[in-house]
Amino acid sequence: MKLKVGVFAGLLAVGICDHALAADTVVVEPGSTAYNWSGVYAGVMLGYGTGDSTAVSDGGFDGSAPEDRADLSPGGFAGAAVAGYNWQRGRLVYGLEGELGYLGAKDSFWEPEGEDYFGQTEYGLYGSLVGRVGFAVDRTLISAKAGLIVADIDYGYGDTDDGEPDPEGSIFESRAKAGFTVGASLEHAFTDNWVGRLDYSYSDFGSHDRTDEYDATYKVSDDIHMIRIGIAKKF
């Protein structure tokens, strides 16, 4: 599953670049800004991701979890390769961007305070495709973005038996989950070809239901925040 997510995101990034290279020249109004942001770019971003993963049950956890729910706060390394294309008209800059990355965010607990329930979640590879729009002030660009994201998320929730998951009273899944992502970036061109970036994004993967072998239903939901710094080369 992780390989499929990576291939999917990689094809998106390549498609963006192929389309950009075939695009017409974009007009920048004379005197509007000294730096031209239009063109193909590619780079890397590194930082940290943290979020919330929750399972709410109608009778799972063997009645041990308070209010029949488990709340996790996965966190960890976040890194990605990005590629995209900008168009510019006056101070308005807009474009498309593909991202392929890895999230090391994870969290778990087992038998908290002597109770017999558990929860665990772990992110992996992800890919996204977003549209961007921003405002340029010479070599500085402030932009917002929104689009789609697909991430590999492994999780497990349920009852324990002698310190191990009860196979009939638990749910486990490793799957690629799709969601929406929004965010903002502050970029500065230090040279004509090298651009630094401070980037924030929020991704929501929604919720879905899973049922254990005792017919207890769990509503599982996940979201993640990422803040990263990066560098890109403009071609």
Rank of each mutant, 00 (worst) to 15 (best):
M1G: 13
M1W: 11
A9Y: 07
A9H: 09
I16S: 10
L21K: 15
A22G: 14
A34K: 12
W37P: 05
S38L: 01
S38M: 02
Y41W: 10
Y41S: 04
A42S: 12
A42F: 09
G43H: 13
G47E: 03
G47D: 04
G51S: 03
S53F: 02
S53Q: 05
D62R: 10
P66I: 00
A70V: 03
P74S: 01
G79H: 09
G79M: 02
A80D: 12
A81M: 08
A83S: 08
G90D: 02
L92Y: 12
E97Q: 13
G101M: 06
G104R: 08
A105D: 07
S108F: 03
Y117R: 07
Y117P: 08
T121L: 00
E122G: 12
G124Q: 09
Y126W: 11
R132A: 00
R132G: 03
V133G: 14
F135Y: 15
D138I: 00
T140D: 04
T140H: 08
L141C: 05
L141I: 03
S143E: 11
A144V: 13
G147D: 08
G147L: 02
T160R: 11
E164Y: 15
P167Y: 09
G169S: 09
I171Y: 10
E173I: 00
E187A: 08
E187Y: 06
H188F: 03
A189I: 02
N193I: 03
G196T: 06
R197Q: 06
L198I: 14
D199N: 12
D204C: 02
S207N: 12
Y214N: 11
D215I: 01
A216M: 07
I224P: 06
H225R: 07
M226A: 06
R228Q: 08
I229H: 13
G230F: 07
G230N: 10
